[in-house]
Design a binder for these strands. Structure first.
Lengths: 259, 259
DNA sequence: CGGCGCTGGTTCATTATTTGAACCATTGGT
DNA sequence: ACCAATGGTTCAAATAATGAACCAGCGCCG
C-alpha cells in the first residue's frame, strides 16, 4: 500500500457518527504509527481535505471535499438530479427513498427523501456505508456489474446482518440471476429486520451499474398493491435518473413496459 | 512537498471546463514525471477519488468525493442550508447570488442561484476558483480572517483581472478596514468589468470567516435603492446562514440593525 | 501538592518507497 | 509506411517515509 493510499484511507474513518477524530483516536483506528498519522494528516490539512478544531485540535473533513464534489457534480450531476427524483418518488410511493453509489468494497448512501404520508417510516442517514450482499441497492448494482467484480465482492466473508441475510455466495449468485430477469431487486429484512426494500440499478455511459435507487418501507405495510405501485414507480424513476446523468442501460435490461 | 500533497495537487487540475484529463495532459499540467503521475493517479483511483473512462482512459473525479462531501455536510451543512438561502436571496434581490468558501490561496464558489426577474444577469459556474483580492466575497472573508493569513495572501503578487482590480497590498488593507466598519463588502468591476458585487462573511464556530455570501448584479442596474435592498437582504441572509451552520460572528461584527 | 495517564507534537537513524530516463505497444493521422 | 501522439512499464539511484522514544501540557484524583 502506497503512502497516498494510506493517507486517503485515514479519511475513511470519518462517518456520520464520527465527524471529528483526534490524533490518538486516529492512530488507534488506523493501527498506524502516531508520527505517520500526524504527518499524513498534516498533508491532508495543507490540501484542505481536513481541518483542525481550534480548541481540541480534532480533525474534521475540510472544504476541499465540497469543492471536488461540486466539480464532479458539474460533469455527472447525479446528486442534484437525484434530489428531485427522490422527492417525487417518495411522494408517489409514500415511503422513504434513497440513492446509493457502488464502491470498491461497499455501497454508500448519498441522499435520501422521506414521505410525510405515514408516521412510521424507515429513517436513514446520508453517507451511510452498507454492504453489497445485504441490501437491495447493493444487489441491484451487483446484478449489473462486471462478473469479475461480483466474484471479488463474494470472495470476502459475507457478514450476517440479520437472520435473513444471504451469506452463502451461491445463494447471492442465484439472487442476482433472479434480479436480472426482472431488472428489479428486493430484500425483506436482510439488512434490517422489518424493512422491505426495493431497488433498481442506475447505469452510467458504459452500460454498467454505478449506483442504485431504492424504496425502503416497513414490512408490515407491504401489500401486493403497494408492491406494484413501488415497482412501477421505481422503474420509471430509475430510467429517468439513468437518462438524466447521461447513462444508458445495457441491451438486455428489461424494459419499463415489460411485465 | 510530500508524496501525498503531490497526489492531491493533481486533483486541483480538474475544473468546470476540464472535467476529464488524460495521463499525458496531466503530466504536462503538473510538470511531474509521467510514471509518477501514473502511479499517483493509480492510487487515487484505488481509493475512488478518480475513475477512468473506458474508451479514452481519461481520468475524472470519482464517487468517493461525493461520499466525503455528504459526510462533511452531515457535520457542517453549509451546502444544503445555503441552497434555500440563496434561492430566497435571489428572489428578494432579483439578482444572481452565490456562496464561496475561503481556501489557502484562493476562494471557491460552491453554489449559486439565479433570479428570473431580469433577462440580463450575471452568470456563473459552481466550483469556480477566484482570487481573494479581486472579489467582494474574497475581501469579505479576508476582512474577518486571521491577520497572519491576510498578510500571507497579500505577500503574493496580486493579479490584475481588470483595470479596476486592487493590486496594491496597502489599498487592499485599507479596503478591508473599510469593510470591517460596515460588515459589508462591495466591489465594482474589480473581477469582471460591469459587475457590481456585494458580499457578507459567513462565520464558523470559531468566530472567523470561513466563507461568504454574495449578490452579483450588472453595474448598470445598481441604483441607490437597489443597493439598499441588496445590502439589507444580504445582512439578513448572512446572519441566517452563519447561525444555521452553528457559527457565530465575532463580538465586533456590526449588527443587522445598525445603520 | 505530586504523580499518573492521557493528550498533541517532535526527533533522527534506519528502512523502504518514490523517482525519472528510457523503453514498449497502440492508435490515428498524413 | 511513417510520424507523433497516446497510455503504460522498467529498474538502479535518490529521496522520502517510518517508528521507537522523547517532550510538554492538561485534567484528574488521592
Amino acid at each position: 500500500m502506497g503512502t497516498v493510499s494510506k493517507a486517503l484511507s485515514l479519511l475513511s474513518f470519518f462517518a456520520p457518527d464520527r465527524t471529528e477524530i483526534g490524533l490518538s483516536d486516529l492512530t488507534r483506528l488506523s493501527g498506524m504509527n502516531k508520527a505517520t498519522v500526524y504527518r499524513l494528516m498534516g498533508e491532508l490539512q495543507e490540501s484542505g481535505f481536513v481541518e483542525q478544531g481550534e480548541n481540541d485540535r480534532a480533525y474534521r473533513l475540510g472544504p476541499q471535499v465540497l469543492h471536488l464534489a461540486a466539480l464532479r457534480e458539474a460533469s455527472t450531476p447525479i446528486l442534484s438530479v437525484s434530489r428531485r427524483i427522490l422527492r417525487e418518488l417518495s411522494e408517489e410511493t409514500g415511503e422513504t427513498t434513497h440513492v446509493s453509489l457502488g464502491h470498491e468494497t461497499w455501497v454508500q448512501t448519498l441522499s435520501h427523501a422521506y414521505s410525510p404520508r405515514h408516521a412510521t417510516k424507515v429513517t436513514m442517514d446520508d453517507a451511510q456505508t452498507v454492504t453489497y450482499h445485504a441490501t437491495s441497492s447493493g444487489l441491484a448494482i451487483l446484478a449489473y456489474a462486471d462478473p469479475a467484480f461480483v466474484e471479488q465482492v463474494l470472495s470476502h466473508p459475507l457478514k450476517m446482518h440479520t437472520s435473513k441475510t444471504l451469506v452463502d455466495p451461491d445463494e447471492v449468485r442465484a439472487k442476482l440471476a433472479q434480479i436480472r430477469e426482472t431488472g428489479l431487486s428486493d430484500t425483506l429484512g436482510s439488512f434490517e429486520l422489518e424493512v422491505h426494500s426495493h431497488a433498481v440499478p442506475i447505469f452510467g455511459a458504459d452500460h454498467k451499474a454505478l449506483g442504485a435507487l431504492a424504496v425502503a418501507a416497513p414490512a408490515s405495510r407491504m401489500s401486493p398493491d403497494q408492491k406494484k405501485t413501488i415497482q412501477a414507480a421505481l422503474r420509471r424513476a430509475g430510467a429517468a435518473l439513468t437518462h438524466r446523468i447521461g447513462g444508458s442501460p445495457p441491451a438486455d435490461y428489461p424494459q419499463d413496459t415489460a411485465r
